[in-house]
Amino acid sequence: MKIWIGVISIGLLLMVGCSGEERSPLETSVYNAEDDKIGTATLTEQPGGVQVKLKVEGIEPGMHAVHIHEFPKCDPPDFKTAGNHFNPLSKDHGLMNATGAHAGDMPNVEADASGMIDAELMLPEAKLKEDQMSLLRKEGTSIVIHSGPDDGMSQPAGNSGERIACGKITLNADEDETSDPTEPDKKQEGN
């Protein structure tokens, strides 16, 4: 009996260990207020947290806040269904706040003159594996781009303006087969 319990325990540990690998990297599509796909966010678990590679187009040139929000809901046009910032430890908002920051707070990104954001960010407290800090806990979370920059201090969201783009972070997020406007069209390349 003890042997069977040991074998089952080892099997469960192996399954849990493998489940983290299946979650990383995870690519999610990002949509604008008109529900058009404008790019992707690729999340990869690393020893220092979760790396976020954000590549989107069609954004007003200038600085923009990017946050992880608490629900995997991106109902246009205002994306309020994404809820508040991902904040499982109930901290104050802001990367410059001595008592912050939310686990979903990230540095501002810049859209270039053509409206392209191509940035790499880190979420040092986040995980993709099962954990209190997992971006995939419960149903998942979302990544939201705002119309303005985050001031790093103001509560509850850094005075960052309207939500202008959103992507659901879920286990099946990478099943979206909508073409990515930031990548060359594969059909046209073959001609």
Rank of each mutant, 00 (worst) to 15 (best):
Ala173Arg: 06
Asp176Asn: 11
Ala126Gly: 04
Met153Ser: 03
Thr178Gln: 12
Asn191Asp: 13
Ser160Arg: 13
Lys168Tyr: 00
His93Val: 03
Lys127Leu: 04
Asp105Arg: 07
Asp75Glu: 14
Ser142Leu: 07
Ile38Ser: 10
Ile3Lys: 10
Glu177Pro: 00
Ala157Arg: 04
Glu139Asn: 12
Glu175Pro: 00
Trp4Leu: 14
His67Met: 08
Asn97Gln: 12
Ile5Gln: 09
Ile3Ala: 13
Asp105Lys: 05
Ser9Glu: 03
Gly190Ser: 15
Ser134Glu: 09
Ile59Lys: 10
Asp75Phe: 09
Asp174Ser: 11
Glu130Lys: 06
Val66Gln: 11
Ala98Tyr: 05
Ala165Thr: 02
Cys166Gly: 06
Asp118Arg: 04
Pro107Met: 03
His146Lys: 04
Pro181Trp: 02
Ile68His: 07
Lys168Thr: 09
Glu183Leu: 14
Thr44Ala: 09
Ser114Ile: 01
Met1His: 10
His69Arg: 15
Met63Lys: 15
Cys18Glu: 11
Ile169Met: 05
Ser134His: 12
Met122Glu: 09
Ser147Asn: 06
Val66Asp: 11
His93Asp: 12
Val52Met: 15
Asn87Pro: 06
Asp151Tyr: 01
Ile10Arg: 02
Glu175Val: 04
Leu89Asp: 14
Ser90Met: 13
Gln46His: 07
Ile38Tyr: 03
Cys74Asn: 08
Leu26Val: 03
Cys74Asp: 11
Met1Trp: 04
Val30Leu: 07
Gly17Val: 00
Pro72Val: 07
Pro184Phe: 05
Gln132Arg: 11
Arg23Gly: 04
Glu130Gln: 05
Glu175Gly: 01
Trp4Thr: 12
Pro76Trp: 08
Ser147Trp: 04
Arg23Glu: 11
Gly39Asp: 01
Ser179Val: 13
Met1Ser: 13
Asp185Asn: 15
Arg163Ile: 00
Cys18Leu: 11
